[in-house]
Every structure is written in C-alpha cells, then in structure tokens.
Amino acid sequence: MARSLEPPPYYAASRYTSSRPSSSSAVGSCVVAALFLLLAAGGAATALFILFRPRAPAIAVTAVQLPSFSLVNGTATFTFQQLASVRNPNRAPLAHYDSSLRVGYAGGEVGSMYIPAGQIEGGRTQYMATSFTVPAFPFSSASAAQPDTITVAASGPSPALAALARQQALSPPLIEVDSLLRMKGKVTVLGVLTHHVEAAKLCRIGVSPADGRVLGFRC
C-alpha cells in the first residue's frame, strides 16, 4: 500500500513562517523621512523670509514752509507745513497708525500733530502734507545761530569783504527748529505673520526771524 508523500521538515517550516522586516530598518526610514521634511520646511521658510522680509518704510521730506510767522517781545508763533513722501518697500500693504510730526526748538518740543491712520499698498509711495499751528513759545536770541565771522588781514579788508561783513552784521540771527516725522505700522506677511515696523526722519530747519522765511533745511 502506497503512503502519501510528506513534505520535508524544512519546507514546512519555511511555508508557515512569515518574513517580517526588522524594527531597526523601519525606525531608520522614519528618521530619514523626518529629517527630509525638516530640511524642506526650513528651506521653504528661509526662501519666504528672504522674499517677504518686512522692511521699514522710507521717508523723504521734500518741502517745509511757514505760511504765518510772528515774533513779538521775544515770543514766537507760526504755522508749520511739511510735505513728505512715504514709500512702502514691502510686497504686502503697510497699515500705519500712531504716527506723528513733532517740532522742537532749543532742545524742547513746541508743537506736535498726530497723523491719521491709513494704508499704503505694497511698492507704492504716498505723499503726506501736514499743517498745524505751533503755540507761542519764548525765543532767545542767544540760542539762535549767528553768522560766520570773517577774518581779514592786518592791512585791512578789501571793499568786497567789507561789504559782506557789513551785510552779515546787519542780518539777524537764524532760528533753528527741528522736525521729527515718525511712522509706525505693521505688515502682514502671507496673511498670517504680522510684523511691526517703524521709521523716523529728523530735519533741522533754518528760519529767518525777520519774516519767517525758510532759508534751508537738512535731514
């Protein structure tokens, strides 16, 4: 009587034993994938920061005027007007608020004005004309800027130098006032991240005490 053939023992063992991957290889794959994701996220964040890096607005003062001016008994008062341009160098809009223009004399503030809040689109320039009346403040001729002294030779000045010296002696001293335009705002990057930016422009203005003409300014 013939007997049925049975498979060899090693064949049966290999048939019922499932091949399972080692746990160490799975952990290594997860670590590599996590490192790759971290590097990709870091590179994307760096590129976005360089492309959308928030920058402060650029301020340029283009004109300063004093339409009305009065100097009586050592007390000065005037109307201060200033025209400035504010450029938004960011791609996102700039929402400015809590901005102001301040005028100072002899180290102290004599007048100020708050600038209404607004918005400047990305890459655009907005012109701001401000005008306000500076209250009366004491004017000291000792603190005013004096004209430069002319040195002449011992033999005597020439007619041209003598005329210039007489003109400077007759001209009154200058009134020097300072203006400080400060802009504050925020820029929202990609509609998620909000960054606060701030810029300021300080100018020194020379004013004639005779009629209030602006003789020059530098910022």
Results as ranks from 00 to 15, higher is better:
A144E: 14
G123C: 07
S141C: 06
I120Y: 05
S112W: 09
P209T: 00
R53G: 15
A45H: 13
S143E: 14
S4I: 09
T151M: 14
A26Y: 00
Q168W: 02
A162S: 15
I150K: 11
E6L: 10
L83R: 10
V110G: 06
A44C: 13
I59P: 08
V197D: 00
V61H: 06
G104I: 01
V134C: 02
Y114T: 15
V187G: 01
H196N: 13
T149I: 10
R3W: 15
I50F: 11
P8M: 07
V177A: 10
T79Y: 04
P209R: 04
L38N: 12
A142M: 10
P147S: 15
T46E: 11
G118C: 05
Q167S: 11
V86I: 09
A60H: 12
T125I: 03
L71G: 01
P209M: 05
P138E: 09
A13Q: 04
L190T: 08
A33D: 00
A129Q: 10
D148F: 09
A40W: 12
L71P: 02
T130N: 12
L174C: 08
R102T: 15
S4Y: 10
A199G: 06
T79C: 01
G107Q: 04
S18A: 12
R87K: 15
E6F: 03
S19Q: 11
S112E: 07
A58D: 13
A136Y: 00
F132I: 03
R124G: 01
T194D: 07
D211Q: 13
R87H: 13
L39V: 12
A92M: 13
S171T: 07
A169P: 03
S4Q: 09
T151C: 11
A145T: 11
C203H: 06
V134E: 04
G156T: 04
P89N: 01
P93G: 12
S143G: 08
V214I: 15
S14L: 15
S14Q: 11
I175G: 05
P157H: 06
S141I: 13
F80H: 10
D178R: 12
R218M: 09
Y105M: 06
A84P: 05
Y114G: 14
A84F: 15
V207M: 11
A210S: 15
Q65Y: 10
V152Q: 06
S131N: 13
M128P: 03
T188W: 04
Y11I: 04
E176N: 15
